[in-house]
Design a binder for these strands. Structure first.
Length: 427
RNA sequence: GCGGGCGUCGCCAAGUGGUUAAGGCAGCGGCUUGUGGCGCCGCUAUUCGGGGGUUCGAAUCCCCUCGCUCGCCCCA
């Protein structure tokens, strides 16, 4: 087939689904408005170094999944694989943090070069929240509650919130040494993938999907037993607050987030309806990232929701009604001109109109009017023009509706027509 | 990067070596020179993702290739 197609993993959002996306975005905007978050938009393309420094060279995202290329000036550029690094970069670049803590949200496409599968595309969309400059454990629970409440307000059910604490950098270093030791003692029982990861990224072995490895890992030392008292206290406090908020959660001592910048609270929200890619939302605290990117030592916490996965769970349970208020049936030389002019006047009054421009038989136009979902049809033909009228017909009547089915209004009295339609559309 | 499944009209599909490639939905036209949601009639793939091969003959068999899909790795 020589027909040009979209690139692998880059999907079109066709008109029939875009309205579902809009519905989600509208609800998210409203929810975030309630919390007083401010939206930020950053470029899709960034200097490669931003991601290699923030996400971590050893991570798969940087190691093998980035869309990286050289521009005409030989600068290494990368299509953003996630949003946090860009938001932090932007905040630092524009001195946002010197104006106090920032509570931000963003929405947009991200890019990762992977084999597409259910709930995973190469261009995908994330909705994220970042709290910059706020250290309290109350922030951890607030951020988690924002994610949780957004998903609830979208009507999602069967979600599970899992949390863990990754502690301080020092806790992780101690644990790493102790884990590597244990893994090496049990080397021959590990699957080959896990064997390879021992020295590169041993913590990641913890959330392997290999069943046998999972079983034996039950004996492995746990990160939580290697946390210092301060880290432990902090984690306890977060749990207390989640209980106060009545948000159910599950402790998952093997939850390790994939990006290097996370510490202390880490969380994921999972759905049982997603197949292999069950994480809808992931986030956590990243107190060292801002400093690593050249800012002052500043605490931060955030999360990202995968919109494709979200829409997958939502199915058709959400949508915006995209039907026009009125479908304009019109036929005949003068009538077609008048209909065009009249449509424009009505649209200026915020009445949405789909104007039929096919010139086909009235029967056909009514068929289309019916399918458009409009509740009212405006009809203009030679007869109406000669009588100086506009014919209005109600479509899709319910059985118990006894109000008249059709009306005639003088075409010279635009105001009457406008008021009539506005009144009808409201109901 | 590695495995499994699949690829026939815009969509859903029948067809597994033999004359003109079912059917449904959608679209267009008509029955009804001007009134929808139902019904009926007609039209819409020289071609089966692409390329090569086997054969008198291929959508059907073989090879290569491209794409989709599910899973692994990893993540949202």
């Amino acid at each position: 087939m020589s027909q040009i197609q979209s690139l692998r993993g880059m999907t079109d959002l066709l008109p029939d689904e875009v309205h579902r996306w809009n519905a989600v975005e509208n609800i998210a905007r409203k929810q975030f408005g309630l919390v007083g978050l401010k939206e930020i938009r950053t470029p899709l393309l960034e200097a490669t170094e931003l991601f290699s420094r923030s996400i971590g060279e050893a991570s798969d995202v940087v190691g093998k999944e980035m869309y990286t290329f050289f521009d005409r000036a030989d600068r290494s550029c990368t299509l953003r694989p996630e949003g946090t690094a860009s938001v932090v970069r932007s905040a630092l670049q524009h001195g946002l943090l010197s104006q106090g803590p920032q509570r931000l949200w963003y929405l947009g496409p991200m890019f990762r070069y992977e084999r597409p599968q259910a709930g995973r595309q190469r261009q995908f969309h994330q909705l994220g929240v970042e709290y910059l400059g706020l250290a309290s454990s109350r922030i951890d629970s607030e951020v988690i509650s924002i994610a949780w409440d957004l998903l609830l307000s979208l009507g999602l059910k069967g979600l599970v919130l899992e949390i863990n604490s990754l502690g301080k950098a020092e806790d992780r270093r101690n644990y790493r040494t102790c884990l590597i030791e244990w893994l090496q003692d049990n080397f021959e029982h590990l699957d080959s993938d896990s064997q390879k990861k021992i020295n590169i990224n041993p913590l990641r072995i913890l959330d392997t999907k290999n069943v046998d490895t999972q079983k034996m890992l039950k004996e492995a030392p746990l990160l939580i037993n290697n946390l210092c008292n301060e880290s432990l206290d902090r984690f306890e406090k977060v749990q207390e607050l989640l209980k106060a908020l009545e948000i159910p959660f599950k402790l998952n001592p093997r939850l390790v987030r994939g990006l290097d910048y996370y510490g202390h609270t880490a969380f994921e929200i999972l759905s049982d309806q997603l197949g292999a890619q069950s994480t809808v939302c992931g986030g956590g605290r990243y107190d060292s990232l801002i400093e690593e990117l050249g800012g002052a030592d500043t605490p931060a916490m955030g999360f990202a929701i995968g919109l494709e996965r979200l829409l997958l769970i939502l199915g058709n349970s959400i949508s915006n009604d995209i039907s026009p208020d009125v479908y304009f049936v019109n036929k005949g030389y003068q009538a077609e001109t008048n209909a065009l002019v009249l449509s424009r006047k009505l649209r200026a009054q915020n009445i949405s109109i789909e104007l039929d421009s096919s010139g086909s038989a009235f029967a056909k136009q009514f068929k289309r009017a019916d399918r458009s979902g409009a509740k009212w049809a405006l009809v203009l033909g030679d007869d109406e023009v000669s009588r100086g009228e506009v014919f209005i017909k109600r479509l899709r009547n319910s059985h118990d509706d006894k109000s008249p089915k059709q009306y005639k209004i003088s075409s010279s009295d635009i105001d009457q027509l406008i008021n009539f339609l506005k009144d009808k559309i409201k109901n």
